[in-house]
Design a protein around this nucleic acid. Structure first.
Lengths: 214, 214, 214, 214
DNA sequence: CATGAATGAGAGTTCATTCAT
DNA sequence: CATGAATGAACTCTCATTCAT
């Protein structure tokens, strides 16, 4: 019946701050294990204050994903749209650079990582992510391939296989470096690593009988 | 939803039954969300009985990973050991088939999936997995590459990039199909998909000028 | 469900408005369940503003009861004082009319209803109510009976039994109609119902061997 | 992660014990204010153990009312069924004795008291109570009146008024004694009080001209 | 005077773990 | 070995109350 609170000022952009804190805590501990109080503390607020902005812990997760989803996908989409028709090879290199670089940044990869671990338990959220991120990605990658094939610059390969080859290295890179802390030996620069991957994908492992002119 | 298996098969193999049940429940619900009672029910035992075999929920997770980890890695290791020196190209194709096929099977991919979602919260377990699975895998993949390069069959590419290209498609395939239910359009057979991926990796996207296999 | 009365009538009569709102909310939800915010909204004020007028939620309850208590009791008191000596039978009829009518009005019966549900948890408030309402009522009813007996108009019956017979029907009427929504079948007019009750109380159920003159 | 419980035996009739405790606590504190832990302590159990028997606090309230409701109503029903046709006057006296006596017993009146305070917030529970208690009561009282009128022993009075006169004194008696601790002055024995009330109701306040029982 | 963001003490509920049987 | 009733710590969410503005 007796309370002795001590109050604080009130910045404007509280929701963003909270989501930022929530993302960090969710990624670190997993949604189920994360305590609302941890998020609050990290956001510099009291537990109860969070509920002025979000009706539940799950709502934070939803808002979080809805907010951060798409940023990466959109950048991929734009990149492909701008470069695929011009120079497919450069487009592919650029795409791999974008992906590997993003996956190398703990901050940017946080949301995808979260989806990786939580999607299964939140089917609606997974559906949202699939629609706004994966499908966008898939379309862009397909478009890149189609454009390149059209121009005769790439061989006509299977789209699903192609997507797995394009997306896979980034995911694995993230898993290895972020979760298992298995860093690359030489190519610690994401750009270099992306280039090395692009080199494999573009030219294959089998040596070419280079232009034997004479 | 309710199981009452009053039949008790193999009373000696209890631990395995329990771990099997635990794996299923953990993968389905995540470690934090999974209830010990669910595992017990699924194993046809009472809650308390589990504690006769494992001292804690976390111990089940450990036992689980320690048990299932390595099976896939060992099979990869053997495959590479047997075939890399003989025919690197076939070895690579086989490796991709093994991985994609494994990732296509919910049962086999269960343990890796579990690590994907839980590794971050259990550093010791992650270390174990890294040592017994990832490192084994990495060594095998490196060995394959080295052998092939040695023979002049593959170009000399960066090992880390190569590993990401080899492992990545399988992981992505698992994520897309299991978590997001995004199935491939045409190549629904894991073997075919693996071949299509191998084709890209081996020969690259850039068409070769010479008469070469598709 | 949402009120935004930016019009501020009678800024001086705030306390009354608040108490009115509080009474409504308390009666509807019960004291414990009622939220201060609901009262504020209903009073067209912010939550914090209430605390400019009342130091606590409980203080509102106290003020409320102290304010509304006695109105009914005083009217009963006056009625009896004016009519008991003149015409006890009419006085009793009038008393029942007052009570049944009051209990039929949700607004007037609100305070008594509130006491009915909350008295037990607020002993001091209950004491206040007993003193200012119940005792007044009891004295009036006793006085009516005494006057009537004195005049030889009523039989000399037990005071406590008499009070229970006089007050009881009103309470039951309120409980049945307000809480359980069990309305009377025929006598839906409070006055008529009061008369029917008075008829029973005055003349009893056993038929009289009517005026056997000659 | 660490627990050090200390366990107990397990009597058979736990649910009943819990409901008994819950009734006591609910009546004392009101449903909203009552703490589950208080119920648990009173039942000699831990908080969590209650949830082995009831899925929620509200479920306890429901079970409680469904269990205790009807006992009194059924006894009233039986009494009337057995005696109304034989001797309506005695039946009415008996009915009042049953009601006043029940209302005088804190244990028996607990459930009705609870409904009095909580019915408004739990409409479904109120409906259940109305159907299983109030309607039964109403039918019995009506039947008594009808039988007596039929035999020419009672005057034909309004049913609703009659019910309010019959039930009212008991309720008021309970409210006055239990909640406000206003005890009767002389007739402290419930039976005597009931008789005095019956006397008023049967013979009325207006003296009879003939030689009649006091 | 008034606002409403903020606090923080709980309350209901869950569940890993234990132990009497 | 097995059971499942019981424990109690921990968690999410609520809300009376306060105070900077």
């Amino acid at each position: 019946m007796i309370r002795k609170p001590s109050h604080r000022r009130r910045p404007e952009a509280r929701p963003e701050e909270i989501l930022e804190a929530a993302l960090a805590v969710f990624v670190e501990q997993g949604f189920a294990t994360a305590r609302v109080e941890d998020i609050a503390r990290r956001a510099g607020l009291s537990k109860g204050a969070l509920y002025l902005y979000f009706p539940s812990k799950e709502a934070m997760l939803n808002a979080l994903v809805e907010q951060s989803a798409g940023a990466l996908a959109r950048s991929v989409e734009q990149h492909v749209a701008h470069s695929a028709a011009v120079d497919p090879e450069a487009a592919l290199r650029g795409l791999l650079r974008i992906l590997i670089t993003a996956m190398s940044s703990p901050k940017i990869s946080a949301a995808p990582r979260l989806m990786l671990t939580e999607a299964h338990r939140f089917p609606e959220l997974a559906a949202f992510y699939r629609e706004h991120v994966l499908d966008v990605m898939r379309r862009s990658v397909s478009a890149l391939l189609a454009a390149a094939v059209e121009k005769g610059v790439f061989r006509k390969v299977d789209t699903d296989a192609f997507m797995r080859v394009m997306i896979g290295p980034g995911i694995v890179h993230m898993v290895l470096t972020t979760i298992f802390e298995l860093k690359p030996e030489k190519l610690t620069d994401p750009g270099d690593l992306a280039d090395a991957i692009a080199d494999i994908v573009l030219y294959g492992l089998i040596p070419r009988q280079e232009s034997l002119p004479s």
